[in-house]
Design a protein around this nucleic acid. Sequence first.
DNA 1: CTTGCGCTTGCCGCCGCGTCAACTCCTACG
DNA 2: CGTAGGAGTTGACGCGGCGGCAAGCGCAAG
Lengths: 253, 253
Amino acid sequence: MAWSIADVARMSGVTSRTLRHYDEIGLLAPAWIGSNGHRYYEEGQLLRLQQILLMRELDLGLREIAAVLDSQADPVAVLREHHRRLLAERDRLDTLARTVGRTIAELEERKDEGDMAGITRPENLFEGFDASRYEAEARERWPQEYERSRRFTETLTAEDQERMQRETTAQMIRMAEFMVAGTPVSDPAVQSEVDAHYQGVSRFWTPNAAAYKGLGQMYVTDPQFRSAYDRVAAGLAEYQRDAMTAYADTRLS
Amino acid sequence: MAWSIADVARMSGVTSRTLRHYDEIGLLAPAWIGSNGHRYYEEGQLLRLQQILLMRELDLGLREIAAVLDSQADPVAVLREHHRRLLAERDRLDTLARTVGRTIAELEERKDEGDMAGITRPENLFEGFDASRYEAEARERWPQEYERSRRFTETLTAEDQERMQRETTAQMIRMAEFMVAGTPVSDPAVQSEVDAHYQGVSRFWTPNAAAYKGLGQMYVTDPQFRSAYDRVAAGLAEYQRDAMTAYADTRLS
DNA sequence: CTTGCGCTTGCCGCCGCGTCAACTCCTACG
DNA sequence: CGTAGGAGTTGACGCGGCGGCAAGCGCAAG
C-alpha cells in the first residue's frame, strides 16, 4: 500500500509543498521514489507524519521534533522546556495586551477631552513616556537590570508614570533647596532625601553601593541627565552625586 | 545639533545596524548625509525614533508603525486591532500550554506504570490522539468547522478523549449488531443510534444535511475510516453511511 | 498531436534585524 | 610621509516554516 504525495496531503491535511519541505530538511523522507521521480509514502511514513503533526500542534520547532523522533532527546524533557517557553511567552503577551489596552484608553481619553490639537501629533502621542530617553544608557550598561525595570514599568498606568515624574521633579527641587542653603550632603535631612531617592530607584532595580555611586556619577556625566538637573539648578547634578556617594558609603556598604 | 549613527545608537539603545535598516526600509531616514556618506540625525529624527521604539515595544510591526507615523492610519484603530491579535495569541498559547502540560503528565504516568516498553516507542507516544487522523479530510473540506472543532478538542483532557473513543467504538458495535440482524437503516432503533452519533459529532461541529451525508460517504471512501469500520464488521461503513443518509433526509432537511 | 493532470526542482518572499566581509574616509602617531 | 586604527559605508547571507510561482517532465485521454 503506497500513497502519492497528494494522497498523503489529503489524508493528513498538510500541503504537498510541506511534505517536500520535510523531505528537504530530512524530517520525513518518502518510503521510496518512483522511476518518474515521484515520492511514495507507506504506513511507516504516515505514522511518523502523524507524530510530527501532533508535536507541531504543540508549536514545537521542526528541529526539536526531529530530535525527539530520532531519539536524540527525551520527549518529556523537551516538552517541559517547551511548556516553560509557552508560559513565558503567554505572560509576555498578557502584559503586552494590558499595556496596549491602557494606551488605547489613554488615547481615547485625550480625544474626548479635546484639549490637545490632535492625537496624531507626534509631540502629544505617548507624551507620558518621555522618561524612557534616560533609560537608554542603563539598557546598555546593565541589560539585566534594565530588563527587570522595563517589565516593572509596563505594569504602571500612565497616571502612575506621570505621578512618578512629578515626584522625581519634586525631589530634585528639594535637593536644590538644600544645595542653595549650603547644607552639606552628609546632613541627615539631605541623606533622608537621598534615602527617598534610593527607595524610588529600588522600585525599578536595587543597586548596591558601587552601582548607586555609578548612577550618581551618570547624573553628572550623561548629557541627558545633566541637562535635566541643570534645568532645576546649576550644579545640582554634582550635589546630587555627592549626596548619593555619601549615602552609598554610609548606608549601603 | 547633529548626531552620528553611533551617537544615536548609544542614546536610543538600538544598534547602528537597526538604524541603517530603518533607513533602508524608509522608516527613519537621517536628517542629512555628509560628504563622506555618513548618516547624521537631528532632534526630529530622535523624536521619531522614540515613537518608533515605543510602538515597537508594543510589538507592532514596522509596517504598521510607519503607517501610523505617516498618518496613513488611525493609531487607536491600529492599536485596537493589535490588541485583539495579542489577546488571541495569548489565549492560543494558554490553551497550548495546558495541552502540553497534560501531555507531559500523561507521558509521566505511563513511565510510572511501566507496562509499556518505552515512551519513545512511536506507537505508544501520544496514543490518545489517534482520532486526529480522521480529522484530516475534514480540515481540508471544511476548514472553519475544523478549526472550531480543534479548539474544542483542545479543551478536553486525555481522559475525556479516551472516553469519547470508547463511546465511538461502542456505537460502532451497536450499529454492527443492527446490520448483522438485518435491521433496515430506516428502523427507529437504528435512527435513534444515528441520532446519538449526530449528537456526538455536533460536539465538534454541526453539519447540515448535505455535510452529514458527505461525512457518511467519507466513512466509505476514505481508507482510514473505512478500515476502522471494516475492523468492526465487513460492510459496516456502507451500512453506517446509508443510515446517516436516511437520517439526514428525514431529520435534517 | 494536443491537452491536461500530477508531479518534479528551484528560487524568491516573508520579518527584523545579526553577523560577517570588503571597502572608504579621517585622524593620530611614529 | 606612511601607516595603523577607528568609525563609517554597502552588500550579502542567515534565521523558520513554509507559500507561491515558473519551468519542465511523464503519462493518459481525446
